[in-house]
């Protein structure tokens, strides 16, 4: 394999890992509730900004408190972890306000699409008021990578160290989640609720708690993704998570709604496909995900690894 191609593939896999994080967040909620949480993109933004603030980053001149910063300056790793937990807690709040009241009433699931969008709009605009619309870059050497070179040479391919870190963390998170879902008792309970909520409740599974857990984990995945993208690229304004949220949606469909391996494979595939677009046509890159999504929906609506839908009459 030529070094140039390897380089493209590694970069693609790194961004694909983040797409997989977002898509897994959608998948967790979709599999237990059958709905899509459109606030996911806003939680992604939130994760990025929380990481920045926890690292002791200062609010810019357009923010509500110019120059203010948290009295702490945590190392990146700890900030990322706390930011992910913070985003998870906010996701719990979103569940409480946007999903729970509708579910209690047995309302049309379509309505939760609107309410979660509303929650996302509120979150993003609160971020905008607090932080201003400007972009933020993480301080240099943020991830304690000073000891490491700026770029690594892997098999002749040059890849930024940050990208490798990105890939490793998202791969680790995805693997941990998969093993947890597969092996742990709670993970099995979650899969049981996804399979058949009524039967799960009859087996003594507290489905309300499982739903909240799904929201917590999904928010954490989004927050993790936001912090990682903030590190590897920058925080390009409070809306930056929305485009990742939309792409995660494309990945979700590509892999098949509700399928965990599908979300991972779809994310990697999408990252690789985007990396293969020549830089001359980079303006069209954002359309690729949606063109693929469109084609998949039309040709194979159940996704690449999804189960075929069967309609019972």
């Amino acid at each position: 394999m030529s070094a140039a191609l390897l380089q493209i593939l590694l970069n693609g896999a790194a961004s694909g890992g983040v797409y997989a994080l977002v898509a897994l967040g959608y998948t967790l909620i979709f599999s237990v509730l059958g709905v899509i949480n459109f606030a996911q993109g806003a939680l992604f933004s939130l994760g990025g900004y929380l990481t920045f603030l926890l690292m002791g980053g200062r609010i810019g001149v357009n923010g509500a408190l110019p120059g203010w910063h948290l009295p702490v300056a945590l190392p990146f790793w700890m900030a990322l972890l706390l930011a992910a937990i913070g985003a998870g807690v906010v996701a719990l709040l979103v569940e409480r306000v946007a999903f729970a009241p509708l579910r209690r009433r047995g309302a049309d699931p379509l309505l939760s699409l609107i309410t979660s969008l509303g929650a996302g709009v509120v979150l993003v605009n609160l971020l905008q008021i607090l932080m201003g619309a400007e972009g933020y870059a993480f301080p240099a050497g943020a991830a304690a990578l000073e000891g490491l070179p700026e770029a690594l040479l892997i098999g002749g391919a040059r890849i930024r160290t940050v990208q490798v870190v990105l890939l490793l963390i998202s791969a680790g998170a995805v693997a941990a989640l998969t093993v947890w879902l597969e092996r742990s008792r709670t993970g099995q309970a979650m899969r049981a609720v996804a399979e058949d909520p009524t039967a799960a409740r009859l087996m003594g599974i507290h489905s309300g708690a499982i739903v909240r857990l799904a929201f917590l984990l999904s928010g954490m995945l989004a927050g993790l993704g936001g912090g990682l993208i903030g590190l590897s690229v920058s925080l390009a304004g409070p809306y930056f998570g929305i485009s990742f949220g939309l792409k995660g949606l494309a990945v979700l469909v590509l892999g098949g709604l509700g399928s965990v391996p599908g979300a991972i494979a779809g994310g990697l595939l999408m990252g690789l496909a985007e990396a293969l677009i020549p830089s001359a046509a980079s303006g069209w890159r954002d359309a690729l995900a949606f063109a693929v999504l469109f084609a998949v929906l039309v040709l194979r609506p159940s996704g690449l690894l999804g189960r075929r839908l069967q309609e019972k009459v």
């Binding site: 306000v97 509303g118 509120v122």
Partner: peptide
């Protein structure tokens, strides 16, 4: 923010 709240709480 208020607009978002309307969309969030309306339904």
């Amino acid at each position: 923010v208020l607009f978002g709240l309307v969309i969030l709480l309306g339904p």
